Computed example of a mutant assay.
Amino acid sequence: MKKILFLIVMSLFILAACGQNNKDTNETKEQENAQDQEKVTLKVASLIPPMTEILDLVKPRLAEEGINLEVVVLGDNVQPNSSLAAKEVDANFFQHVPYMEEFNRNKGTELVPIVPIYFANYGVYSKEYDSIEDLPDGSVVAIANDISNIDRSLSLLAQHDVITLKEKTDIYYTKADIVDNPKNLKFEEVDLLMLARMYDDADAVVMTPAYAAPLGLTPKSDALLTEGVDNDFAITLVARKDNAESEPIQKLAEAMTSPEVREFLEENYDETAIPAF
């Protein structure tokens, strides 16, 4: 009889233990499922290094905070804004604020700046001439063809007294605002992504270091003139008005302005990408 009672008690104990194990297993699975559900995928459109490299750099930090950062590399300087406006991506990182503002005006969109990340030191480059003074009369200067970068290019040349611009009466300078052009420079407007190709054909090209770098050129070593940081053209993280204050976007902004990103820029792009934070 005692043996039977012992067996009954042991059976009940085993059943209770199994029940507890099943409960623990179920709770673990529920916790894992909850964690998976809490993870957020954040899609950010970009173009070229160091933009894409900065995004890759902050991926691990964001992953620790439950954000899966997906970098969407696009092929031109229109798609990132179009994709953002269409909600195909959550943010983009490739442009300065004046470029974004012009897109908003033209398309009726509500893209907004989140945080400036770095100044891409704009410069004037020439394959044939060693100084701006050497450019002959009537030289062809290639500049980007979007209105914000036309303004930027002309402002850079005016900053160094290569041309003189009248007082600004509109949002942007255009070639019509040139009041003095001693060298009779001829400005050829091309797509932003075509500037590097113009290095062989034009007498000079005004471009960012991102497009000069593949040619082996840097602002400090090779540019005839440079822009510096006293301007509104920092490369900026951009989102939409409807998601700008969301937690994932704000965490991305925090990660992109971390000491780690600053150190990365200073160590790898000291001539071409000056931290703006």
Rank of each mutant, 00 (worst) to 15 (best):
L7P: 01
I8V: 15
S11V: 15
F13V: 15
F13Y: 12
L15Q: 08
Q20S: 08
N22P: 01
N22G: 02
T25S: 10
K29Y: 09
K29G: 00
E30Y: 06
K43A: 15
A45Y: 04
A45N: 09
L47N: 13
M51W: 07
I54W: 02
I67Q: 04
V73D: 11
L74S: 14
N77M: 05
V78P: 00
Q79D: 11
L84E: 02
A91I: 04
F93Y: 14
F94S: 14
F103C: 06
R105P: 00
F119H: 11
N121V: 15
Y122I: 02
Y122N: 01
E128Y: 10
E128L: 10
D130W: 02
D134R: 13
L135Q: 09
P136D: 12
A144Y: 01
I150T: 12
H160M: 07
V162W: 02
T164W: 12
D170C: 10
I178G: 07
P182N: 10
P182D: 08
L185Q: 12
F187S: 05
E188I: 03
V190C: 05
L195R: 04
L195E: 05
R197D: 15
M198H: 03
M207E: 03
Y211G: 00
L224I: 04
L225F: 09
A234E: 04
A234Y: 07
N243P: 08
A244H: 14
I249Y: 03
L252V: 03
